[in-house]
């Protein structure tokens, strides 16, 4: 499994994908940081940028997940992977972990803003850690959905659009009816930057991630008998 994680990470950083993801995300975060935190709020609330960050994440996560299975399928390399003694669960987990590592690297980069702020006055560390945790959980949910989308098509663009589409739909669901309040990942995340780690929210995000990964495994397993 470690071999697959290593290979996936290599794939991200030998191709432009990884740099595009981190670069794009950081450019947008920097703009928000300058205009909102330094310009508008003039505060040391590091966590504020992550409200907008969550929105940006919707558009950049699919960049790193769209290739996960669709490219393997298109190039036929899927055959190499599926005929190896690795189980489907491990293969799916490996791809998930690799993408999560890319997000973790990005989060570490955002500490730069924290450093800038702490030059003026110390931001609240507890809230910062809480926000980063929530952001990671949110990213994991998005990644798992992205990987699922990429498992059902061999076209990367389709996988990308499908992921973005579903994520945007999840923003607006609560506006249709309050029943859907708990379906909006972004709403669930919004508690974390206030320093609240809500068990229900945490469990929802983790189980959403698990659900998408299990669905991916089922899709891949099912394909063996129908393809």
């Amino acid at each position: 499994m470690i071999a697959v994680i290593k290979k996936e990470l290599k794939g991200y950083f030998l191709s432009p994908i990884g740099y595009i993801f981190i670069g794009l995300f950081l450019i947008m975060m920097s703009l928000i940081f300058t205009s909102e935190i330094l310009g508008y709020y003039k505060s040391n609330n590091f966590e504020y940028i992550f409200f907008s960050g969550a929105t940006i994440l919707t558009f950049v996560i699919p960049v790193i997940t769209m290739r996960a299975f669709s490219e393997e399928r298109k190039n036929g390399t899927e055959q190499l992977l599926m005929t190896s003694p690795l189980s489907l669960t491990r293969i799916v987990l490996a791809k998930f972990i690799a993408a999560t590592i890319v997000v973790v690297i990005t989060e570490i980069c955002t500490l730069l803003y924290f450093a800038v702020l702490s030059y003026y006055s110390m931001p609240n560390i507890t809230i910062t850690l809480c926000t980063l945790l929530g952001f990671l959980l949110l990213a994991m949910s998005y990644i798992s959905l992205g990987i699922f989308a990429s498992s059902i098509t061999e076209n990367q663009i389709v996988a990308f659009i499908l992921t973005v589409g579903l994520l945007i739909a999840s923003w607006f669901l609560p506006e249709v009816n309050s029943i859907f309040d708990n379906f909006s990942l972004i709403n669930i995340f919004s508690g974390f930057p206030y320093g609240q780690i809500n068990i229900a929210d945490t469990v929802t995000m983790i189980s959403f991630t698990a659900l998408c990964l299990i669905l991916t495994i089922i899709v891949l397993q099912r394909r063996k008998s129908v393809q």
Partner: peptide, 18 residues
């Protein structure tokens, strides 16, 4: 059984970035 088999699929799929 997969451990016992070496499979070279049609059209030689490879990870071309490696």
């Amino acid at each position: 059984t997969k451990r016992k088999i070496g499979y070279m699929p049609e059209g030689v799929p490879l990870y071309t970035d490696l």
